[in-house]
C-alpha cells in the first residue's frame, strides 16, 4: 500500500490480506475464459441463468438441488450458514421437495 502504512500487527494483517487478494484476483482472471455452464469446476459467481439466458438449463426443480448445492457451499445464498453456525438446519427435512415444511427457520436471538 502506498498511501497507508500499517503500524500494529492487526494493521499488518490487512496489508497481507490485500496482497493475497491481489494475487488471487490476478490468477482468477485467466479462468473466466471458459463458458459458464453452472456447476463446472470453475465457479461463476452470480449466475442465475443458464448460458442461453433462461432457466431450463439449471437444476429442476430448484428444491431438488438444495442439498446437492448448498451443502458443499456451491450455492451459499439465501440459506442459513451450514458450515459454521447452523449445521443441523435441514436435518428434519429428508427431501427438500417433499418435506420442505420441516425446514427449520432461523431467527436472531432476542426476536
Amino acid at each position: 500500500m502506498k498511501h497507508v502504512r500499517a503500524l500494529n500487527k492487526k494493521a499488518r494483517l490487512f496489508e497481507e490480506n490485500a496482497e493475497q487478494r491481489k494475487k488471487t484476483r490476478d490468477e482468477d482472471v485467466v479462468a473466466l475464459q471458459a463458458p459458464s455452464l453452472g456447476c463446472s469446476l470453475i465457479f461463476d459467481p452470480g449466475w442465475e441463468t443458464d448460458s442461453a439466458g433462461g432457466v431450463t438449463g439449471l437444476c429442476q426443480p430448484v428444491e431438488a438441488d438444495l442439498y446437492g448445492c448448498y451443502d458443499d457451499c456451491w450455492w451459499p445464498a439465501q440459506v442459513p450458514d451450514q458450515l459454521t453456525n447452523h449445521l443441523t438446519w435441514s436435518d428434519s427435512c429428508a427431501s427438500a421437495e417433499r418435506d420442505w415444511r420441516k425446514l427449520d427457520l432461523i431467527y436472531p436471538e432476542g426476536t
Partner: peptide
C-alpha cells in the same frame, strides 16, 4: 484440461 499447453486448444472445463 483447464490449462491447455497449446493456445489453439480450448480449456476443458470438467467437474
Amino acid at each position: 484440461l483447464m490449462n491447455p499447453a497449446n493456445p489453439t486448444e480450448g480449456a476443458l472445463n470438467t467437474l
